[in-house]
Design a protein around this nucleic acid. Structure first.
Length: 118
RNA sequence: GAAGCGGGUCAGGCGAUCGCUGCAGGGAAUUUUCCCUGGAGAGGAAAGUCCGGGCUCCUCAGAACACGGUGGUGGGUAACGCCCACCGUCCGCAAGGAUCGGGAAAGUGCAACAGAAAGUAUACCGCCUUCGCAAGAAGGUAAGGGUGAAACGGUGCGGUAAGAGCGCACCAGCAGAGCAGGCAACUGCUUUGGCUAGGUAAACCCCGCCGGGAGCAAAACCAAGCAGGAAGAAGUGCGAUCUUGUAUCGCCGCGGAUCUGUUCGAUCUGUUACCACUUCCGGGUAGGUUGCUAGAAUUGGCGAGUAAUCGUCAAUCCAGAGAAAUGAUCGUCCGCGACAGAACCCGGCUUAUCGACCCGCUUCCUUU
RNA sequence: GCGGGUGUAGCUCAGUGGUAGAGCACCACGUUGCCAACGUGGCUGUCGAGGGUUCGACUCCCUUCACCCGCU
C-alpha cells in the first residue's frame, strides 16, 4: 500500500518560492480552483495555499485549506512529480471536498501536459 | 398550571480506516531527517482591541503647570473605566431592573422659534386708581389669560382701589444647628431662619484621585550580506598633574540629545573638530535558534466573609504552530448541531450565538 | 499581532448644539440649422448603524459595522 502522508518537504514555505511560482505565469482554473505551477526538478511535487479574506472568516478559510490539502494528500501518487503548485480557491459558496478533489486532478494534469509539450 | 425575574452548566456523542502538529521512550542515520510505540492537541466567546496588568527594550522616568483619563460610599484585586455590598434617583403589582451618580448659594457661557419676559429681570391682553365726553394717557399690580421643553412655591384665611409672602396657618422645598442610627455615602426626628434659591458641567470650568514611552513585527543570540554620501552649532577660558602635549582630569561658559509639551531640574555627550555626535538622503538582510508556555494555573476538600474574594491542604500538568496543525470517508444514536479557529500570557468589558439542562424566587389561577 | 485614520447628495468635499450646504454630474427651459459651451430654474440625503445626555444631536458620550494606511 502506498503511503499517503504529507510532510513539510511537500509544502512551499518561503516568500521566494511563492514569488517564483507566480512569476512563471503558468496557470489554469475552473469554477472551483485556480492553480499556478512551475517545474522544480526536485522529484517532489510541492503545494502552497492562498486563501483570500473575501471567502469568509477564519473558520471558513481554514476549512477550505484543509479540503485542498486533503485532496492533494489523497491524489499525490496520481499526480505528475516535480512541480511547485499554488492553489487558490475561487468560489467559496459552491465549495466542497469532492469538487476540489476533481478539479485538482483535472487541472494539474492539464498544466503538466503543457510543460511536457514545451 | 400559566406568565415572568435572577443565576449557573454544556456546546453533538460513540466506533472503524487513512492522515496533520508538538512531547516522551526506543531504533536507523549522525548535518538536514526517517521509522515504531505511547500519550496530548482551539473557545465561551479563541472575536472586537474598549480598559487594566505581567513580561521586554528605551541614557530609570524628579517638581510645577499643561494634557489625557476617572468620578456616590465602603470593600475586593497585581491592577482597572472591572466585580461585590450598601446609599440616592427612576421604572415595575412583585421577584427584580436601569443608573458617566462630585460641585450650578466659586466664576464664565448657552437656551433657536415662540413669548411681555429665558435670570441682579420684565409687563402683551387683563384687573384697579386718576385724568378724559370718547379714543386714549399716566400710575399701580402679577391673582387670571396666552407662549414655550422650561416662567421666580401650593392651598386657605386675612388684607387691598386692584393685588402681591404683604401678614398668618398648614404643606412642599432650601440652608443652619442639635439628637439618634450607620465605618461611610446617607437616613429619621426635633428646632431655628429667611420666605424661594430655575435648567444645562456626555458646555468651559472647579475639586479629589490616577497616568514615563513603546510594544513579542518587543527583545536576545547565531549565520548571511551591503556603499556610502551631504549638511550642522559652540572657548585658542581658568585650575591641577607630569610624560611639557592639538596630553589627561576637574570647574565655569556655550552647543547637541533624552526625559510626550513649556519652565526648572537631571543624565549623557561635544567644545577647533581624524574618529565620534545630530539631522537628511541612499544601500544591505527578510534565514535559523531563543523568547514560547508551570501560570495572579486547574480540580476537589476545609475555613473566613452577606458577597466579590481570600487563606490553607491535597491532587494534576492541560496546544505551542510559523504560507501556519483538528480533516476526509463510512456506520450508528439523538433534539439533526448556532456563533465561531489559539499566535507572548493573564484579569475584565463589549459584541455574535441553534438550542438543551439545572437551581432559586415573584404574581395570578385551580385543587387539597 | 500592534498602531493610526475615514464614513455627509450619483462623485469630490465643507459644516461653530437651533431648517443640512458648495462644486461637478443629472433634468427642464432659453440660446443654435444641430451639438458643445453659456444663462435661468429644478432634483438629490433614514449625515454608516444602535443606544444615551439635552427642550433640541451631523455636531457631545458609549457601543457597533464597513473601509483605508503604516510597522517585520
Amino acid at each position: 500500500m502506498k503511503r499517503l502522508g504529507l510532510s513539510n518537504r511537500q509544502r512551499l514555505r518561503h516568500r521566494e518560492e511563492f514569488s517564483a511560482v507566480f512569476a512563471q505565469r503558468a496557470r489554469s482554473g475552473d469554477q472551483n480552483l485556480l492553480i499556478y505551477a512551475k517545474p522544480n526538478h526536485l522529484g517532489v511535487t510541492r503545494i502552497g495555499l492562498s486563501v483570500s479574506r473575501k471567502h469568509g472568516n477564519a473558520v471558513v478559510r481554514g476549512k477550505l485549506k484543509r479540503w485542498i490539502r486533503e485532496s492533494f494528500r489523497l491524489l499525490q501518487h496520481e499526480l505528475p512529480e516535480g512541480l511547485d503548485l499554488i492553489i487558490i480557491p475561487v468560489n467559496a459558496e459552491k465549495a466542497s471536498f469532492k469538487n476540489y478533489y476533481k478539479s485538482l486532478k483535472k487541472l494539474v494534469n492539464k498544466l503538466s501536459k503543457r510543460f511536457q509539450d514545451s
